[in-house]
Design a binder for these strands. Structure first.
Lengths: 226, 226
DNA sequence: TGGGTTATTCAGCGAGCGTTCAGCCAGAGG
DNA sequence: CCTCTGGCTGAACGCTCGCTGAATAACCCA
């Protein structure tokens, strides 16, 4: 999962970036509205955390432009001031959630999780795919109740596949969502990680669709774990 | 848009119901957890506003039961208390938003709008032609519910035919749409692929129009799959 | 600073896939 | 009835794509 963090306060930025990285998100940081707009326009983020009081271009303007251009990425707004009328304006500009400073990092993370899972069409907190379960809060996954030892990138890969299970996901899409900016395009890391993941969760679970990408689906006749 | 309002405080209920009606929602009211659970289970709401401090059954329990039963309706939680740990628990139970009393009605309405807006974007656009179904998002096709194993080009061919079913499609048109660049004209790849596709979906489905091309149509007396 | 874990690169292998070709079949027209 | 054109099909070939194991580089924690 790749997040854009648009925040100008250096301290808060550093702290949030750290927290988001620890939660296994790939994070890009934009210190002003101009860069935020540019990045959100060019890179495929899974969610955006947007401070309203940004230099150069105001947060709401940035959001309005994205929405006018048809971007549907979920956006969580941060603001120092707490006037309700401002919140309403933020929502009507196309925000999906709104958080007033100061806040607990835990709450931000919880709201972010809710946003991400809802934007992928899921309602519950833990993702399941057949006998595979993944709990984004704890960053843990299990097969048949047996916990998996996954590295950070293996986890991110599995997370993304589970969020979009049933769909074919191209290599490029995976690269764009697992890593933050600038990454060498012609490299076979994805294949390597898919291979490793297969060794851990069973090789028949991730299907390869030649020329298109990979697809994760529950095997037939497999009861979804409650 | 139909909303379920689960709230026990009579004053707040009346006020919110009024505000929601004024905003042109159809509102049902549940004064306790039991009725809330029952209504949410039987009626197709577009969103639920759920107070946590409900009599008979606790709000979180109601939510958890819905989610366990596979209900994906967006839920906005209301609560009198505001501890961040409680909010985190609410989100992880499957809530989509969380609002602490007291709040401005405007803000509730704004959050509700955001919730409904986002949950609207999840329609699956699958193509169907008689018993053949094709889901472009999953890059998957099935006949009579039986999934097909198609190669990349077979899939593209079927996709194009299904998008233009009923029409006769010339070889040239197919070539132009299946391949990016110009392509060797005197080659019979298309015929080969049509042949292979016929083997997989049934030979009587793709009709040959001599001298013109091919046509895909639903067979007569065949009910379109829902 | 050093040891262990994790990420990335590289090269070779294997198989699936697209393409070609040759021969066969069917329909249309004389 | 024969011929000719356009379409079908099975088999074979060669290429590309994706997989894998091992080596190297980056990273992290003590």
């Amino acid at each position: 999962m790749r997040i854009l963090l648009a925040e100008d306060d250096p301290d808060l930025s550093r702290q949030l970036k750290q927290a988001l990285s620890d939660a296994d998100y790939a994070v890009d940081h934009a210190p002003d509205g101009e860069e935020a707009h540019f990045l959100g326009d060019t890179e495929p983020y899974d969610a955006v955390i947007l401070d309203l009081g940004l230099p150069k271009i105001d947060g709401v303007s940035v959001l309005e432009r994205w929405r006018r251009d048809g971007k549907t990425t979920p956006v969580l707004i941060l603001t120092a001031r707490g006037a309700w009328s401002e919140k309403v304006a933020g929502f009507d500009a196309g925000a999906d959630d709104y958080l007033t400073k100061p806040f607990h990092t835990e709450e931000l993370l919880a709201r972010l999780r809710a946003l991400l899972r809802r934007s992928a069409g899921h309602a519950t907190a833990t993702l399941t795919c057949g006998v595979i379960r993944l709990d984004p809060r704890a960053a843990r996954a299990s097969v048949n109740g047996e916990p998996l030892r996954l590295t950070s990138l293996e986890y991110r890969l599995l997370h993304y596949l589970m969020m979009h299970q049933g769909r074919v996901i191209g290599r490029t899409e995976l690269v764009e969502h697992l890593y933050d900016q600038d990454f060498d395009r012609d490299s076979n890391t994805i294949e390597v990680f898919v291979g490793r993941l297969r060794k851990k969760i069973g090789s028949d679970r991730i299907e390869t669709v030649r020329g298109l990408g990979y697809r994760l689906t529950a095997l037939e006749g497999e009861a979804p774990q409650p």
